[in-house]
């Protein structure tokens, strides 16, 4: 690219006009054509094992969620307040820059989230890739799945379950950094006084999830099982 350093990247006015006129005469490439091409690229990337991170967005009552998967499983769920562009840049840095929007690869995730928000699903049945979570934080994230739908646990209880009863603050950090919120239910971890506490998606999102699950559990208690 030495030519660029010599300033040759800037065409003269006349060349620029010719280039602009040609581009204008050839008309913009329409979005439908490019969408079709991106689908073709995704197919070939997957065939060749180059689709390291696939992502899509899912709209729901908590706004738009970003969901991302590696070939091993769901690797990231992010709320809008977490800035989706920043989350994708972080995935590029920490997992692989081979990141493509491939909605089809996350159809099952989107469907299960829809069912969960509609109150017809109580457990997610998805392969998870927890590579973004390490050490004690990972142990905490793995224990979170044991808190049943509609129930809550205190940070202290989770600390004890993870084998470090005094690491209450660390549990809080682990929950805040849970790479797959909603699907791994860090929203079910609350303060000892019963107030919801902080949440990566915002306090309102946490309250909404707890309310959703409280509605889904009949007054007589958890009837268990999950609709097909």
């Amino acid at each position: 690219m030495t030519a660029h350093e010599n300033g040759e990247i800037r065409p003269t006015a006349l060349t620029a006009r010719t280039t602009d006129a040609l581009a204008a005469a050839l008309a913009p490439v329409d979005d439908a054509t490019l969408d079709g091409l991106r689908t073709l690229l995704a197919e070939r990337a997957e065939r060749d094992g180059l689709l390291d991170v696939a992502y899509r967005t899912v709209d729901g009552p908590l706004g738009t969620l970003l969901v991302a998967a590696t070939p091993a499983g769901l690797v990231r769920v992010a709320f809008e307040v977490q800035d989706h562009a920043a989350v994708l840049a972080d995935l590029a840095a920490r997992v692989s820059p081979r990141v493509l929007a491939v909605p089809r690869r996350l159809d099952a995730v989107a469907r299960q989230l829809d069912e969960y928000f509609a109150g017809t699903r109580r457990r997610f049945d998805l392969p998870l890739d927890l590579r973004l979570s390490h050490g004690f934080r990972r142990a905490v994230v793995e224990h979170l799945a044991e808190i049943a739908y509609g129930r809550t646990a205190s940070y202290a209880q989770v600390a004890a379950a993870a084998g470090s009863p005094r690491a209450v603050r660390a549990v809080g950090t682990a929950c805040a950094l849970n790479p797959v919120p909603v699907v791994v239910p860090c929203h079910r971890v609350v303060r000892s006084d019963g107030t919801p506490g902080r949440y990566a998606g915002g306090a309102a999102a946490k309250a909404a999830l707890l309310a959703l699950e409280a509605d889904g559990v009949a007054p007589g208690g958890d009837r268990g099982g999950r609709p097909a």
């Binding site: 054509t33 590029a92 820059p97």
Partner: peptide, 19 residues
């Protein structure tokens, strides 16, 4: 630090198609 490849496709997809 490389940005997500999706950004590259979106930024340059039309130019590459014309070529």
């Amino acid at each position: 630090m490389h940005p997500p490849f999706e950004d590259v496709v979106r930024a340059h997809g039309a130019t590459v198609l014309r070529v």
